[in-house]
Amino acid sequence: MPDSSTEAAGVAPLGRQSALSGMIRPGDHGAADYRGPGVTITERHPLSMVQIEARGPEVAVMLEASNAVLGLRPPQAPNTSVGDGHPRILWTGPNRWLVVEPESRDLDTVLQDALIPGGAAVVDLGHGRASLRLSGRSVRQILMKGAGLDWHVRAFTPGMCAQTTMFHLPALIDCRDESTFDIYVARGFAVSFLESVTQAAAEYGYRLG
């Protein structure tokens, strides 16, 4: 919430500028066939992303507190994710999760207030990562080009997420439905990553926007 001094100085609060601003050229590119582009690439922005982590006895406390404040319990199984996106919670490491939602509130503060008393660590990563959503019939081919996990429709199903290298960058990949994936990469690499994804997608045709 902008404080009054800003208003007084006549300065509008600054909006967020994504790492990919100006880089997404809306339209169809590459070799799409009569079915249209094989994949649609959109940027998800602005997002709130907050990492929560606890140790030992703090964990149970944190899970309860998360449930209370988010209405959602962080998933116990490694490499799984829960939630419809408002928020979605992704497992990112032992006793560590990433809470993600479209920016609408100060999620960092909400979680700090709720979880820090129980000993958890809460870290705002909302600006540290860029996120692309890839969807379409060729999306798994693009994952196969970039990363070595088993992307078969039988093997990597909705509700699974994984951290791996994709096009030589660390990436967090979240399967939303059979042909939709959210991918998170470090903000600074976003442009390089988008270039790699679009190159890989060119043979199937891709839609940006």
Partner: peptide
Amino acid sequence: AKTEEAKTGEAS
């Protein structure tokens, strides 16, 4: 933490 609980590994 044994591998049984890890569902997203490469192994199908």
